[in-house]
């Protein structure tokens, strides 16, 4: 196995394009090095993104935020402006593993590992995050909900990497929230994860985005769930509709953490709770 630490994303893409064997990008390594240890991957080349200067920055722009692919979760938690703008995204990233994992794990790695239960992914989707993808020949920007195509699968070509994740500047009276259910209080894999983002106008929901994790082969955006909220001030009927739409969107697996029936029901319950938090964060009064 060769280890390379290019200084630019373009150089990284060039290394990937040239490689004939199995090549892997290395972010925090909290998924990749576990797979390496288990013998699930046998890389010929590992390309570390942590020496790419741009990938280490959190930039605040007129359009919002740009979070470099190498920025670990611990740094998101410390970033006051980001925390204020997108508390749901930051709380989701903060749920990943222990303090030891937090010092390493990245949003880009969480996304590209493409686990259906990845915690930060539903929150990024609800917030309208996009992945800035650099290839050997071109750059492209892809909405986060389009990146994972199945468990462990992404839309990235063999010469492509994520350079950064962008989050828009939240409009006035916008709030987001992420909740996951795990049988323990820490260090477990989500049975269900729900992210909700709402923008209010005169006390009512003007626009909404609702995303679910761990209930389908990838995290999913659920437009019907968002529609249930629009025009309401989160009355009981709207919340019931939201819960039904979320449950209807579920296509989960049965495993030791939860049965299909349990996950389906839980998605609705958690969605109601997450919606209330997002609504309150947006300044809503119910």
């Amino acid at each position: 196995m060769r280890y390379e630490k290019p200084a630019t994303a373009k150089e990284a893409a060039g290394l990937l394009a040239k490689e004939k064997g199995a090549a892997f990008l290395l972010g925090g390594g909290t998924d990749l090095l576990v797979k390496l240890k288990m013998g699930m991957v046998e890389p010929d080349l590992v390309v570390d993104v942590k020496h790419i200067a741009k990938a280490n920055e959190i930039q605040t722009t007129a359009k919002g935020f740009s979070i470099g692919a190498a920025v670990p979760s611990a740094r998101l938690t410390e970033h006051k402006a980001l925390q204020k703008a997108w508390p749901g995204v930051v709380e989701a990233a903060n749920l990943i593993g222990s303090d030891q994992i937090q010092g390493r794990c990245t949003l880009a790695g969480n996304l590209c590992n493409a686990s259906p239960a990845a915690d930060s992914v539903p929150a990024m989707i609800a917030a309208g995050a996009k992945a800035v993808i650099v290839g050997a020949k071109k750059r492209r920007t892809v909405p986060v909900e389009k990146v994972a195509t199945g468990p462990g699968q992404t839309c990235l070509g063999s010469d492509e990497l994520i350079e950064s994740i962008t989050l828009p500047k939240p409009g006035p009276r916008t709030g987001d929230a992420y909740l996951r259910f795990i049988p323990r209080t820490e260090m477990d894999i989500a049975v269900v994860g729900v992210a909700v983002c709402v923008t209010l106008e005169r006390g009512r929901v003007k626009t909404a985005r609702v995303a679910l994790g761990a209930v389908a082969p990838t995290a999913i955006l659920v437009p019907a769930a968002a529609r249930a909220l629009v025009g309401t001030s989160l009355d009981d009927e709207a919340l019931e509709k939201l819960a039904r739409a979320c449950s209807a969107a579920c296509n989960p697996i049965d495993d030791k953490r939860g049965t299909v029936e349990y996950r389906t029901r839980l998605a609705g319950v958690l969605a109601k709770r997450a919606a209330k938090i997002a609504f309150a964060r947006a300044g809503g009064k119910s």
């Binding site: 390594g29 909290t30 576990v34 240890k37 590992v46 670990p72 030891q100 390493r104």
Partner: peptide
């Protein structure tokens, strides 16, 4: 464990707590 779950291999890297089993 060698897979980041147990923390027995904890060290700090530039002051940041990490599992050294998950660092090359």
């Amino acid at each position: 464990c060698g897979t980041g779950d147990c923390g027995a291999c904890s060290v700090t890297l530039d002051g940041q707590l990490v599992c050294s089993c998950l660092v090359l």
